[in-house]
Design a binder for these strands. Structure first.
Lengths: 204, 204
DNA sequence: AACGCATTGACCGAATCGGTTTATTGTGAT
DNA sequence: ATCACAATAAACCGATTCGGTCAATGCGTT
């Protein structure tokens, strides 16, 4: 592992991204060292030279992903913004920022959540608690919901937005024409549209 | 294949659903006959007794999925409804109806779209044209968009709804507490909420 | 040239692959 | 009870792929 971390960053990222992607798509068992090595553009032997074993690589990624998330969360202060949509936008920005650095990290974490392989199941529980902050659940708490029109149920809006952003995050990474900036623009536009129509006029 | 189709329907469905699920999650190559057999609760040998080969099973599923989709489409007449939200609701109902019968069918079709394995790549192209009707693209065509408020961009609404429903369809199938009725209720409520706030009042 | 070291690709035994065969069942007709 | 036979599970097959190792290679430094 010291071998790996003294590598050029560009190469580290290539290997990390390839690993996140394969584990994220296939899970621990079905993602083979060969798959990962080929996708990263290195030989299989290097994976074991860097990490010792496939399991070690997976554990490294667990730790790495946990750190990446918490680090990204520290960049954004959610306690400051109490407005519903501002929080959503901040959350989306956070996700986009993570995806910009590691496009498959959220895919990986999504898979980790459902991973059942006994070889890693126990180790997962540790990082799982750390990563659950990214859930959108916290949005509702301590948020001022009185700005919504009387006939608008905030729970429905949350539902729409959560599913909406999940739809954006999932899968798509394969797509070559995959522009995160354009993605964020679209998300922002949609959120603004909802804000304009779901809020009482005096809060716009 | 005649062997298979003379099986009790309940057993057929179990095998089909298991196959759709594994191929849908892992793709053609990574989904093994053993995986499918175990999930379906039969022995591996039966798969080859019924279908002859793994490829034959996959081709059978391609045909099966195509037929299921077209059959479901014929149940719903989209040309009658011109209202934007009515069409969306009809489309959602269609998807839910498909998922009720074969919960992993849409997952399978989504994976088929990105399948690259040379063993089945060519055969996929045939059914792909048949299945593309399910795309939400057709919604905009021939739809009366004048009902929207002036400050509401229909493209954004489409964007929201497409991603929203994609978020609903994807993944979730693992979840035990998975109630399609509740799901349809939620979708309908959300669509109604949007209709109420994005349409000019006189069209409500 | 000689060293150090990152990297490869052939290689290992074990596991799993797609697919076959054998052995055991359950069942319905006689 | 016995036969015939289809359905099924499980052992089995050669081939491939698995996680992991290692000798050989290339290549920059001195």
């Amino acid at each position: 592992m010291e071998n790996f971390e003294s590598l050029p960053l560009e190469k580290q990222n290539r290997i990390i991204e390839a690993s996140l992607s394969m584990f994220g798509k296939l899970g621990y068992k079905k993602a083979s060292s060969n798959d990962i090595a080929t996708l990263a553009g290195i030989s299989k032997g290097m994976i074991f030279h860097y990490f010792g074993s496939k399991k070690n690589l997976y554990l490294y990624l667990l730790d790495f992903a946990g750190n990446a998330i918490t680090h990204a969360m520290n960049q954004y202060d959610f306690t400051e913004t109490t407005d519903f949509f501002d929080r959503i936008i901040a959350g989306s920005n956070l996700k986009i920022a993570v995806m910009r650095k590691y496009p498959s990290l959220l895919l990986f974490l999504g898979n980790v959540f459902y991973e059942t392989d006994v070889a890693v199941k126990d180790d997962i529980q540790k990082v799982l608690r750390q990563g659950e902050h990214i859930r959108n659940d916290f949005i509702l708490s301590e948020t001022d919901l009185s700005k919504f029109k009387e006939n608008v149920d905030p729970n429905l809006v949350i539902n729409i937005i959560v599913k909406f952003s999940e739809g954006y995050i999932n899968g798509k990474v394969l797509d070559a024409s995959f522009d995160l900036d354009q993605m964020m623009d679209e998300i922002t536009s949609c959120l603004l549209l909802m804000k304009n129509n779901f809020y009482k006029e005096r809060f716009l």
